[in-house]
Amino acid sequence: MATQHSRSAARIMMAPAVILLLGWMLIPLTMTLVFSFKRYLPLRGGDLGWIGFDNYVRFVSSSAFWPSVQTTLIIVGGVLVITIVFGILLSILLDQPMWGQGVVRILVIAPFFVMPTVSALVWKNMFMDPVNGLFAHLWKAFGAQPIEWLSDASLFSIILIVSWQWLPFATLILLTAIQSLDSEQLEAAEMDGAPPLSRFAYITLPHLSRAITIVLLIQTIFLLAIFAEIFVTTSGAFGTRTLTYLIYQRVLESQNVGLGSAGGVYAIILANIVAIFLMRIVGKNLDT
């Protein structure tokens, strides 16, 4: 259905979106790349000239770098494991016949719609506060010493908060995938004498593998970038400084733009590696 006329119209109509996104991507990316090769301290002299790969080397060799990588990996890994394992269990449960399924679904999905600053603050104060938090009350009720969650178990606390936010997403996607599983397959396996656990292992799990991969990739991209949850709770203290947060501090807090930009380039490369895998799957899907 295309004439020359409609094809050129199409090109014109696609232009704003393409140009805007191209600008949005290229301009800041180029600037980051340029800054990363400069000594650039806006509050202490500004642009102090080219310094080659110094920033890249310094960023990686600074004492904060490896701990931040470790923190990032622990948080991302922890949240992924929790959300995917519980997501699978929960989606299987929600797929079972029950009364009030719709309402339960709504309850489970709700945390995803809570803005990150709200969930971070609510958890920090009303649950994890060592004096007045609900957990403190609970611990005391059992005669235990309340835990200083965000300083003594800071990583665990952040993983808990972020998992709470992302569990609904994983559950919803996996539930959607489970519901597309042909129940006759399971029934056939049952007729063949497969016990529930093998039915799960040999039919449900393989069917879910694609959805799990997608949850894994999408969440990784978002989790690598979590910010508000740390900003609001610990501001990067107590070993919760992720790579994202470290870069943020270099750029806006210590105003070392060159160094922060080099870190930014690392972050972009990291995200791109994940994104390539995701786009492969998405691309394959677009063909069908």
């Binding site: 980051t32 943020y248 750029v251 995200a271």
Partner: peptide
């Protein structure tokens, strides 16, 4: 009015969504 490049453009658009914000914060 799909063309051969439509899919690539769409994929590229989606991939910009994955650019980490902190990487371009200062610019």
């Amino acid at each position: 009015v799909p063309s051969k490049r439509t899919k690539d453009i769409l994929m590229w658009m989606l991939s910009t969504k994955m650019l980490p914000a902190v990487g371009v914060l200062y610019p």
